[in-house]
Design a protein around this nucleic acid. Structure first.
Lengths: 134, 134, 134, 134
DNA sequence: GTGGTCTAGACCACG
DNA sequence: GTGGTCTAGACCACC
């Protein structure tokens, strides 16, 4: 099984967004490939012990943005890797989390050098997951 | 004036938290020092063109966590200098926003090089406002 | 009042999409301008005699795509005109409705010249709405 | 072979309707003539790599509306030539898909000129397949 | 079996 | 008052 989703019930970020984001990352890092089938709405909902509507919402959002393709009666599939957004738009979407991260780092009194080094460590850790798919 | 607060109305993070966070940053970076008085709830609310309740909520949270001290009838004052956390604790607190940032960047298909470069740009922009207290 | 939304309950296109699309068109044609406030979720739901969740879904989609900006506790506002999509992506999204239209026209035995003329008529009618805002 | 059907698996319009619509178009444009036999449900399903039930549903709908005639044990045949609708009725039927197309185009910020040019391109592409029966 | 939509109603957070 | 999320359950369409 190449998709493993975990939800943090305590988090302030809504469950459906957690799911969508983890699927997006799985695709961007290659753990999920174009054409791969996703677990059915109901089965994933059962696994995560949440309401099917919540999973459906996540899938629906990904379908709307073109990341997934849903074939009625058959299931949901990875449609493509690319986002279809302009560079400006991608930037605009990245900004909030970048600012949040930097604000947090600075208020925690991390130096520029420490921030860079933490970023590199996390980057290496994240990219490492791209190699093992299958 | 040593306090400069800006609010992003479009952001998903609530205004009262943006204010509280920026006050924390100002203290952590030395722009605000122990004993400094903060603007009154009403004047700050007027400046930012927001509801006084919102400012009051931010101040209240900071008082509750011990960052500010409220002297009845006189105003709010900076109570302590820094977070005083162990390095591992500071790391633990930083992790979530770093991961959120990286996940967002990767799912938006930014390359490692782009991520570094955006971080540097934002870092420069953020640090620029802190030159007053060395 | 510069926003008038009508829903076709018999249509196969879901209500929340009808609402979102009408708002998008209102913005693209200038009937709604950047900064304009939209009716509250609850009031619009009451007017249309549908469930508030359905309106919320439409607004939420528009917020996610960056068309609207929602200020918590204050309401929803028009955020911008531009879509932020690449030309390729805009093309990709246009194709289905163009193909559907042409298939329909051809199966109804309209000639090329008739198709062009009908398009021009409808185009004129639609663009005419752009002049009266306010 | 005078019937060529292609299905768009990603489309929101169900496969059985895509098939039915394309058969209608083939008849309206003369590619299929009264009395022509259609491929068997099984063979068409095999060609398109879909469920035979789906093809059966499409044929069934066309039989019900009188476009096809099903001769038990022998197959399905084209039953009549054209729609036989008045001009206003044909117009009335065309309107919805034209409006949907224009709304989509406008909300995607295509200019009038772009809309015309895309229509021409698609028109040329669509008509190209019809040369066999002049 | 699959996904898609809608309702009703609850609860939370923000201002 | 505002919007945001989630649940429960219903109904539909497709395959």
């Amino acid at each position: 099984m190449s998709l493993r989703i975990s939800i943090a019930t305590g988090s302030s970020v809504p469950i459906y967004r957690q799911i969508a984001e983890q699927i997006r990352v799985s695709i961007a890092t290659g753990r999920l490939e174009v054409g791969d089938q996703l677990p059915s709405v109901r089965s994933l909902a059962e696994n995560l012990v949440i309401n099917p509507n919540t999973v459906a919402r996540a899938y629906g959002d990904l379908v709307k943005e073109g990341t997934l393709e849903s074939r009625h009666g058959r299931g949901a599939f990875v449609a493509r890797k690319s986002t279809g957004l302009t560079r400006t738009e991608r930037m605009r979407r990245l900004r909030p989390s970048l600012e949040a991260f930097l604000n947090e780092a600075i208020s925690l009194e991390f130096s520029d050098e420490e921030i860079r080094s933490e970023l590199e460590k996390e980057l290496k850790k994240t990219r490492r997951g791209e190699e093992k798919h299958g």
